[in-house]
């Protein structure tokens, strides 16, 4: 059983925003809505690090826990999705999310908060897979086409990985072994738990 995860290798991420733009392109999200962002720590100083962040599709998702309308569901592959028809745009999920993933497009002319929008792991939503309806509400459903999230597939340095947790952690593990450092992973514990099996072994590198 595939368990879909994202993983960003900060040793490779160069803050090029390819992921952010690939997402905008694939789902045609409007101005002001970025399902994915690139965050920089220590900008302009030695040790500067960047990582790409979106919904981490948590194993124990806080958004899901707090949603008053219970509009979230988790697919068999571990992708956290929601039904926009139920969403009331209350923003509670935004407060709960440790990664700031939920976004609220402006709706109407008075700046009301629209229905929540977030990364779908390119898996659409509860509408018919590949339908226009699904595309308009949630963007393209690549998983149903046998493809993986475009942000990771287009990553300029293959820093951002997406797919089956076992597969991508193996890819990452190989790199970490070669460099002999950088085994720590941003946000992995936060999203997937400290005892999650796929966390790569520490290589005694920087912390």
């Amino acid at each position: 059983m595939a368990r879909m995860k994202f993983l960003c290798d900060s040793e490779r991420c160069i803050e090029c925003n390819g992921c952010v733009t690939a997402c905008k392109n694939e789902h045609e999200t409007p101005w002001g809505i970025s399902r994915r962002r690139v965050v920089t720590l220590g900008d302009g100083k030695p040790g500067e690090k960047t990582i790409s962040v979106a919904c981490m599709h948590c194993s124990d998702a806080p958004c899901m826990a707090v949603c008053p309308t219970d509009c979230f569901y988790r697919t068999d592959e571990g992708v956290v999705l929601h039904d926009k028809d139920l969403c009331i745009g209350c923003g509670y999920c935004f407060y709960a999310c440790p990664f700031g993933a939920p976004q609220f497009p402006q709706a109407g002319n008075f700046g009301q908060r629209g229905k929540m929008d977030k990364c779908t792991f390119c898996a659409g939503g509860p509408e018919k897979d590949g339908s226009d309806e699904e595309y308009k509400k949630y963007g393209r459903n690549r998983l149903a086409e046998g493809k993986l999230p475009l942000c990771a597939e287009m990553c300029s340095t293959k820093a951002l990985l997406a797919g089956d947790a076992d597969v991508i952690s193996e890819i990452f593990r190989e790199r970490a072994l070669r460099r002999g450092k950088g085994g720590e992973l941003w946000g992995w514990k936060q999203a997937y738990g400290a005892d999650g099996a796929p966390e790569p072994a520490k290589q005694g590198g920087k912390t």
């Binding site: 219970d70 509009c71 929601h82 139920l86 509860p126 897979d129 998983l143 046998g146």
Partner: peptide, 19 residues
């Protein structure tokens, strides 16, 4: 985990439409 049960539309399995 114990959260409220999902109340939205049922989603199809991703391997149904094209596989």
């Amino acid at each position: 985990q114990s959260v409220g049960d999902y109340r939205g539309k049922t989603d199809a399995k991703p391997y149904e439409a094209n596989f």
